[in-house]
Design a protein around this nucleic acid. Structure first.
Lengths: 237, 237
DNA sequence: TTTGAAAGTGTATTTAGCACACGAAGTATC
DNA sequence: GATACTTCGTGTGCTAAATACACTTTCAAA
């Protein structure tokens, strides 16, 4: 089984396309949403379009983080978005749907090439989000993370894993405010936590906890235009 | 910037080689060790050999997990080893050392091809470990994780990140016993924790904690052949 | 001025974290 | 068989964090 050192035997593989897929989370005060794109389809083949998570091939001189950043910036005009690599999806059969294969034949120079994808998730402030046409995407839209339609490739699995990682990191690093506007109330933040973690939290204990972590800081300002006692506004520290 | 749907424009990239690198941890009752290999070198070029973490290209029909498992099984005879994907390393310049490039020219059919690697770490029971000749490796040996020499490619970074992930998961999931023999004492387990986390722990509190998590179970047996009060043996539950 | 609706706050109880020291159970030696 | 040596195994009191729980305040609208 072992080879002698004196006989170098170069190893051959076909090579893979590597892509980055971004699970973009947004929050609209009621539901946690994920950004989907309608996959581009050639006019000739008339298939029902599929939905997918935005993603693209990693370019030849690009790092993975750079590719993820580029994908996000092609979809939005936002800068400084929270981005985190969370898993590599490399099953050789992850592309097995008929439509998926047809799509690859249209949009990839090497449609037979195996595709490995690196999953990132990102948190954007829905309030500041303005969709932009991206080279790799058709229309974009937001769907409730707890009610996601059937997606292209293995994207349902990717979204599911992203959510698990998000939950985990929300608890560990308190990154929730990345999904809220610059100024937010603690009630908004609590609701966000409740929706992401999918359980109710006690108001007083939640506030104690958040304030203890010192990830947010109270502003002088108060909420305006609400028909009840206005809440104090906070921002990321 | 956006393209009309009616003009499919296939995207071209050169493709990448994808490899899996395994950071194999072992524990010898005193130090946490990492398994290194001596990189194979052709006799012709007489370079000082470099050390590396074991890894190999992912084969054409292999998933990432399968590749990691194969790499481990080529190095050891062990089955059922704990294995976990922890990060993808994809910087386009991660291979920039002169020796690294020479090595690629010898052992890769496409030495210029960009290489992406998926990092896995694994926990093995040193007591059961028997090194085996592997197709991709020269000699193997263990080094103290806190005293690692300069390695090929970006492997120092890979090991470092693996250690951080291991620490994290040790706390969260109590997987420590994967590094110990089937039967172990709580003192052994505590020492393992202390070395991985790099801090002292209180004996009584440690025991309370471990027993509360119910990840281990007490055996009838006691330690034998020690010149002091024999400790109770435990095993994974 | 009354109503509605969410904001904001305190306390008591339970649970987990932590610091700390000594008798018990074996082996080896004389 | 007494002694010395070494690690094992345990209990308690204190402090900090987690949890459960309900009422008053502040504003806008009618």
């Amino acid at each position: 089984m072992s080879k002698k050192n004196s006989e170098p035997t170069p190893k051959n593989t076909l090579g893979m396309d590597v892509s980055v897929d971004c699970v973009v989370f947004g929050f609209d005060n009621d539901t946690l949403k994920v950004l989907l794109i309608e996959q581009k389809q050639p006019d000739t083949v008339h298939l029902k379009t599929q939905n997918a998570v935005p993603g693209d091939l990693v370019l030849d001189n690009e790092s993975l983080d750079e590719a993820a950043k580029r994908i996000l910036q092609e979809l939005t005009s936002l800068k400084g978005i929270y981005l985190k690599q969370f898993h590599a999806f490399g099953d050789p059969n992850r592309v097995r749907g008929l439509k998926d294969q047809q799509w690859l034949r249209t949009f990839r120079v090497n449609p037979e090439r195996r595709v490995l994808t690196i999953g990132y998730y990102s948190l954007v402030k829905l309030s500041e989000f303005k969709p932009k046409a991206a080279s790799f995407a058709g229309k974009t839209y937001w769907v409730d993370v707890y009610n996601i339609p059937s997606l292209a490739f293995d994207h349902n699995e990717i979204v599911h894993k992203a959510l698990l990682m998000l939950r985990h990191e929300l608890m560990a690093d308190h990154i929730g405010f990345e999904l809220l506007p610059e100024k937010f109330t603690l009630s908004q933040l609590q609701k966000l936590y409740e929706i992401i973690l999918d359980k109710k939290l006690d108001k007083r204990n939640f506030r104690k906890n958040i304030l203890r972590t010192e990830t947010v800081t109270a502003l002088e300002e108060k909420q305006q235009g609400v028909l009840h006692k206005p809440a104090q506004l906070f921002s990321k520290k």
